[in-house]
Design a protein around this nucleic acid. Structure first.
Lengths: 344, 344
DNA sequence: GGATCAAATGTTAGCGCTAACATCTGGTTT
DNA sequence: AAACCAGATGTTAGCGCTAACATTTGATCC
């Protein structure tokens, strides 16, 4: 209720909020000094800084991030592109990213492709338009034009979840090996008639990679590797449906290797309701290691992928890269762990 | 690989990407015409538009959103502030918001307060600094300075989850009534010795409101309403721990009314493992209506809150407001539904 | 053929900030 | 006391775009 302004100065719209210039006038310094108080306080003498800070408080200054980012061609935005928000896995990765980036003063721009590459390309383009400081994207496979655009881009690109040399940085795990690992476990347990079951396998090629690992191992042992696919998004009831389908259509099946824990858990819970004994009537295995799997009876045999850690480590590497520290390996294998419950 | 530029024109840094001016030169129009092709294509003659679009393609123009937003004092950002990303409820709300806003060309800026009001205030300030088009925030209670700042702000503010007249718009449900509703159900079932159990009840005052509804109803019937609180974030094992604690410390307890489904589900799964019969030994009720509750045995008795719908409707109202359409009720009661399983 | 007018396009002046370079302090050195 | 210099502060010129106003175009009418 103190500062009056000459009423008809502005020729343009705009919220008419106090600007750096107002703070500068109020504290008797130049705008760049105010800017320095905000961006590199150590480069301003303490007395000056305090005067400016008081003025900021007094006029109720809220800095305009758009103007700052435009002038410096850098927004402290991190573009994050995931294929789905319905899948807990990506939520946990985002959580890891968010926590770490936020600590360093970066803001996430979240994009959801819904497993659509065209959408992915659009999102990349938009996010580059925001002068993002870096981009984190799921997987190693993208639209060709999109990959080209990112290669030309001068800032860090981090591809996560899947393991391999991509555009720039990479943190992930080998889904092929994970599928193979679980298949080996099932063989070790003595199962021979094993069905792989997944949903939305077209878009989700990481699940397909796991299947390929599974299939190759079985074939090396002279076994068949049938697969059942559902077009729906992964959900408990799809797991239940898959279980019933396999019991009826493929009698004699000894184990079902599900593409993810949600499906596997849905199958176990349904088996419990229906009086189907797991693993005696049919063994069940999953992938991901969601907390739920360890609380149901029987506990789910699955492969644990460190989801938050992927986010955290990806963020740390990106930050190191932004701040000019060299990041040694551009491919980081985060690994996975077989977690044996009673279900298989 | 076609366009060469005079090499020492620019005095400043910058990615040296093609700009509107480059496209304008390339297509023989003025920059504002290119701008119009991008922002209001209908106001440009078709022939001109096609020429410009071709030029955009040719030079590989990517628009600079920062510059556009600065010039128009509007970013098409929607600030979204939630207290937690570990809680599925907020994830689903975010999903509803995201899907709807994205369809209308808005980008979400996501902030996580971790149930800390100071953090909330900081986030609000930052997000206003991005010239957001609107702000969606969880709950009706905020830091005083924060509320004042939002009241002064000229753009739509949407407070969600909780029901009541707040700063501007509101979409939510009455948590007090929900707590009361479940308490009534438990009384109707004949339970009298009922314990309420929740986690992180200090920050999460919506859970506390539910407790108050529960408590008031019990007291109206001359019953006590003991409460058990855990400081940890809600998780399956906390529910299990709470169940064990109550069984030992409060023998004779007939029902436990949990603050959320995660706790309640954890308790049921643990009871199954421990041979505690639900609801015969102890009845269990939850709140939220997560899918899981309907797949376990016994099915969880809970109150379903339409989480994605909250996000969707909140987004729709905000968009209507931004686009100048009057939004009639500024308080929208989304309601809730009692969902009776076998657990209580 | 000129008046009329809406549609299409252009000109100008910023939006609010920061990079780059310039200048000013005031203490230290010789 | 002049020279020197690092640290603090200031001046200038944009960053790339769009609002507001200005002008041109061309179809229609009398």
């Amino acid at each position: 209720m103190s500062n009056s302004e000459s009423p008809e100065r502005r020729k343009r719209r705009g919220a008419d909020n106090p600007t750096l210039a107002d703070v500068a006038r109020e504290s008797g310094v130049s705008t760049i000094t105010v800017s320095r108080v905000l961006n590199s306080p150590d480069s301003v003498r303490q007395a000056t800084r305090e005067r400016v800070e008081a003025a900021i408080e007094r006029v109720g200054y809220v800095r305009n991030m758009l103007a700052g980012s435009l002038a410096s061609a850098n927004s402290r935005f991190i573009a994050v592109i995931v294929p789905s928000l319905s899948n807990v896995v990506f939520i946990e990765v985002i959580h890891g990213l968010q926590t770490t980036f936020e600590k360093h003063g970066y803001q996430i721009l979240l994009g959801n492709t819904e497993y659509d590459m065209r959408r992915e390309h659009e999102l990349v383009q938009t996010f580059l338009g925001w002068s993002s400081s870096a981009l984190v994207i799921t997987g190693l496979r993208h639209d060709e034009a999109c990959t080209a655009m990112l290669r030309r881009w001068q800032k860090p690109v981090m591809e996560i979840m899947e393991l391999g040399q991509g555009i720039d940085l990479n943190v992930g795990l080998s889904h092929y090996d994970a599928g193979r690992c679980m298949a080996r476990h099932l063989l070790d347990r003595g199962y021979r008639r094993i069905v792989y079951a997944g949903s939305q396998m077209d878009g989700n090629y990481r699940a397909r990679l796991r299947y390929e690992g599974h299939r190759d191992l079985l074939q090396e042992h002279g076994l068949e590797a049938p697969i059942e696919e559902w077009p729906d998004a992964s959900a408990l009831e799809i797991g239940a449906k898959a279980l019933r389908h396999v019991m009826v259509q493929r009698p004699g099946t000894e184990a079902i290797h599900f593409a993810d824990d949600t499906l596997a858990t849905g199958a176990i819970l349904d088996a419990n309701r229906a009086g189907i004994r797991v693993p005696d009537d049919v063994a069940i295995a999953g992938f991901t290691g969601l907390p739920f799997g360890q609380h149901i009876t029987p506990r789910l045999t699955t492969i644990v992928s460190p989801r938050e850690a992927i986010g955290r480590i990806a963020a740390e590497q990106v930050i190191a890269r932004i701040e000019g520290k060299a990041v040694k390996p551009s491919v980081y294998d985060i690994g996975f762990e077989l977690c044996v419950g009673e279900s298989a």
